[in-house]
Nucleic acid binder design. Structure first.
Lengths: 221, 221
DNA sequence: TCAATAAATGACCGGTAGTCATTTTATGAC
DNA sequence: GTCATAAAATGACTACCGGTCATTTATTGA
């Protein structure tokens, strides 16, 4: 009776111990130097045990990615708690995303890993893939909500459905954040320096362009 | 005398043969299933020979990436040849990028590989890394040129330096193109479908937002 | 013809993801 | 407590892959 339950709890606890070990290695050495042998050693279990709790390495990394996406969503939710205008909320979400990448680059790398998971074949049966996808959907939903609020309070145009505008904000901010990540983490990426743009200014400029456009207004507008 | 020259030409020819083999495997099986053994077999040389012509696997992939960036730049140059307004040129560049990703997804994956090359350590001494970086700079330069033309002909606002605006267009279009790539190539990526947006419409919406902004204009504007 | 040099080879190494036969541990009936 | 059964854990092993290097083969020019 209670035995099965206790076993289940214990299993979850062990799973988290393993994830802790994996995360610790990720933070120290980066995703590309994360090996299953090292995780097993760090978690003080055998390699075989690792595969009792995770289907494969993908699954393990997605386990970390689940934590990563969850943390990002929590930050997003805090933004949505405020009473700012919808437009300001959108800006805050973007800045939150940017800060997240700056403060948790290794978590972000696990999200890039999720983005690069190719065919469904590679991880179809991973529960964590489902959870990560759910988290990403939730993050997107929060963006939609911010935009919808902006449309309601009159700070954002209603030319497009909120979902579609959210997709554009999502994807474009993804691009900007990627540039920022590369600037932070890749020593050979010097584009910002070359054009004499500071990282902080980039986001301001991005939000300005996204808010007001870069096309010269024609008179009949 | 002529012997050294001939040797040099012959060496270049062989290098290209190996790149052809690698590219063929890339197109057939994708970057993640590209092994040096297979390339050697396909190119009908020994594995050791491969390492006489390329420093390591990174170098080889960057060799393909060089071709990839070169091809993209050629497409960009064709756009710049036209007499469209600067604003239209920018749109055309974006559409060109989008079509490129759709038509050459494996080339694009090699460019993603370039983007993900971490420290300088991993490929500092690769000639191809230099060449790829040069190509990317050239692509960026073409974007700057289009925007500069738009500022000159009055179709694009002059609020920001052309280079900075180009960076924003570069990064945001990168984000949009990434979404498109995922929609095309990852079966588990269903975001576009879920919000009922067609891929073709996404780019139009993107250019519209980027041109005119999504913020409701205030009256004192 | 013959050194000397350049080019090519493939057996081999180290590391890593993943497997599985075997061992160890936990459980519950008696 | 004993024991049979089932669950959990183990680590030696395989397959594969990137990269190396001592050896072999081909080329050159005297």
């Amino acid at each position: 009776m209670g035995v099965v339950e206790r076993r289940e709890r214990e299993k979850e606890r062990k799973r988290n111990t393993m994830l802790d070990a994996a995360e610790s290695i990720l933070m120290d050495r980066g995703l590309e130097h994360l090996s299953m042998d090292d995780v097993a050693e760090k978690a003080e279990v055998s390699k075989g045990s690792l595969y009792l709790y995770f289907q494969n390495k993908n699954d393990l990394v997605l386990g970390i990615c689940y934590r990563a996406t969850h943390l990002l969503n929590e930050s997003f939710r805090k933004v949505l708690d405020s009473n700012l205008s919808g437009l300001s909320l959108v800006r805050e979400l973007g800045e939150t995303y940017l800060h997240y990448v700056k403060n948790h680059p290794q978590y972000y790398s696990s999200m890039k890993f999720l983005d690069n998971l190719h065919s469904t074949r590679e991880g179809t049966d991973s529960e964590y893939l489902q959870l990560c996808t759910q988290n990403r959907q939730e993050g997107f939903r929060l963006m939609v909500e911010a935009i919808q609020r902006g449309m309601d309070d009159g700070s954002i145009k209603q030319e497009l459905p909120a979902e579609q505008l959210a997709l554009l904000f999502w994807s474009t901010s993804h691009g900007v954040v990627t540039i920022s990540y590369m600037h932070q983490n890749y020593e050979h990426f010097k584009l910002l320096d070359r054009i004499g743009m500071k990282e902080e200014d980039m986001f301001d400029a991005y939000m300005h362009i996204l808010s007001h456009g870069f096309a010269q207004q024609t008179h009949e507008s």
